[in-house]
Design a protein around this nucleic acid. Sequence first.
DNA 1: CTGAAAGCGCTTACAG
DNA 2: CTGAAAGCGCTTACAG
Lengths: 340, 340
Amino acid sequence: MALPPRATRIADVAALAGVSTATVSRTLANPEVVSPQMREKVMAAVRQTSYTRNIVAANLRSRQTMLVLVVVPDIANPFFAEVLRGIDKTLSGSGYGIIIGNLANSAAKEAHFVDLVFSGQVDGVLLLCGHVPQGKGRQMDVANVPLVAVCEFIPHVTLPQVGIDNQAAAQRVAQYLVGLGHKRFAYISGPASNILDKQRDAGFGNGLKAAGIRKPHLRFEGDFTFQSGALAATEFLTLKQRPTAIFAANDEMAIGFLKTVQKSGVKVPRDVSVVGFDDIEYSEYCEPTLTTVHQPRSALGAAAARLLLDCMQGHEEIAKPRSQYLEAPMVERLSSAVIG
Amino acid sequence: MALPPRATRIADVAALAGVSTATVSRTLANPEVVSPQMREKVMAAVRQTSYTRNIVAANLRSRQTMLVLVVVPDIANPFFAEVLRGIDKTLSGSGYGIIIGNLANSAAKEAHFVDLVFSGQVDGVLLLCGHVPQGKGRQMDVANVPLVAVCEFIPHVTLPQVGIDNQAAAQRVAQYLVGLGHKRFAYISGPASNILDKQRDAGFGNGLKAAGIRKPHLRFEGDFTFQSGALAATEFLTLKQRPTAIFAANDEMAIGFLKTVQKSGVKVPRDVSVVGFDDIEYSEYCEPTLTTVHQPRSALGAAAARLLLDCMQGHEEIAKPRSQYLEAPMVERLSSAVIG
DNA sequence: CTGAAAGCGCTTACAG
DNA sequence: CTGAAAGCGCTTACAG
């Protein structure tokens, strides 16, 4: 059996056209810099040999890979998938490809991605994982490759970051609930020390205060899971004087809460209003549908990609941080209502 | 401002260690082939310079990129995200990275991915898109790079494919429903000419026949959307003699059907049993929870990646197709019951 | 506008 | 076991 034919190289095209490889390269990269006759000769040879230039070789020489690493904690998480869509749209529009860096809780994989960056396999990195990846004793951010963080805010770093203003959004939720006439509130928190939770918590508290509510709101400790929302509900059910408005730090917990109190005959929103955060797909389908804060996932991805593109184009040095916050409007659905 | 320092090269390490670049390269790739003293000298220099080898250059020379292109129709589709998880697990275990090829209905992007493959930027391709990508008049499968199709079966090609046995699965659904005592059946189809739909349809018909049902089942035309399931429901509601068991070609339609008939007071499963296909996440949460055929998404991805790995290792020529079918068990939930 | 030649940073026969 | 040298397939100053 014959060995697979070697792919045609630029030298083959040059030989066939009777020109130098330099001319072929120029014709393909900057046609306008080549005379029309040359151009025609070369293009004919390209067609005849159905030549495709070897991008790996081109990358080596021109010192760029046209590839961006996107680091995600879990590739199967639909939230990130939607952000990825926005990233892909922007990046592919500029000719960049995406390498997926799926952490999947593996330190080995994380170290591998750090190597990828240090070894010059990518031109830039988008971080959706809430921390700067590290491995073998070094952090990815010292590799002299531009990084941009998205969605999951990373504290104590100077990277450009793209996200929403969690505090302002939570504040608006508070205003909204007060506007409905509620007087007793509770917050279901995320995991201790989670920065997003801190921001949402603070925003909610400030919002209530600003609206003239002096009594501090109740807190149920959660961890972003459906389970912990359900747990908060069982606590809620034991209270003599129950809050009438619940704000959960994310939708999963809001829905866990909602489903659990319903089983005990509590009506939503008649007896209690529930508001979530994120606007995951399911919040549109559950019963009642969930009032929540909409995160513009695709737009967040696109904005981050745009920012990274700018950094990658800024040859001199890695561009100065210019973090960016997008609007996150509250979406009113059927889980919240005027206090009955 | 100083220019960013150039990354250290293998030559720097070699100079520092006082050996040839060949020895450094060998020490890193095959330590056992180098004498212990040499090895120690080299490793010390590697540590001292914190050298990371330039993978792009290594790739060029060794003619492999350790990268696999995964072509998906839509990266934000949770079904594919889960398949991707299985792919990533297997591929990263063997040191391969993933480039995402998100089609997003763009012919330009599709052509770009074809170029990527022809230009040797990836060592293999996984196709989740139900067709062989093409662009500029050429098909991806003639590029002499191994391809494997997953989930979305591609008819009329000789590629290795990994999927489930749709026909057998649908047949089991029929058996199950007959076993519950049902006598009148309907099928909500996918889009015309869709191959998965054809297989599920045929399997359902065969299963009924095999179980002794002679009356042919009703058909509602659908297109895999929630909408079309709802449409089927409105048709269903107009019937004098309604079927008591519905099999939808996917979960979205099953749920669209279910939600719509419920609004007209029809009880599921008391009045009608509903079975879907795929086992999407929502089928566990809707009310009632949906009986459906479980697709082992992550396992499908892993199996396909395994197969591709074999093909990529088979140096001589692209390995012979060895398609593979995984089990797709039916999951009984609350949308189906013994006929009342 | 075009070509000869160097070089991107590695790996790998080939000698020894 | 080690090194000198060629070469992977391009691009890009540098001349002309």
